[in-house]
């Protein structure tokens, strides 16, 4: 079994109103010097295979087809 983590983040230049709101809230809590906050998503997956190359190929397809909207989001894949 392979454990994988997929991280999905907004592309540069895409406005992130939720990140902005979090940035404001952190400032209100007294945390100074925050340049920017961008919110993203993390998916932890367990794949029933031992083949790392296949796992990576499958994960890439999952990201392209469902986990990320590549119009506005980037994704990265890491295997444990």
């Amino acid at each position: 079994m392979i454990k994988a983590r997929v991280t999905v983040t907004l592309k540069n230049g895409v406005l992130d109103p939720q990140g902005k709101a979090i940035e404001g809230a952190l400032g209100a809590l007294g945390f100074d010097g925050i340049g920017q906050v961008r919110q993203g998503k993390v998916f932890d997956l367990q794949l029933e295979t031992a083949d790392k190359a296949k796992a990576e190929a499958d994960l890439k397809a999952m990201c392209e087809k469902l986990l990320a909207n590549t119009v506005i989001e980037n994704y990265s894949i890491s295997l444990a």
Binding site: V14, L15, P17, Q18, N69, V71, I72
Partner: peptide, 17 residues
Amino acid sequence: LVEAGLLPGALMRNASL
């Protein structure tokens, strides 16, 4: 329709949240 790729672009959270 945008998620299915039948229309261009994307729809995101309202700017006001």
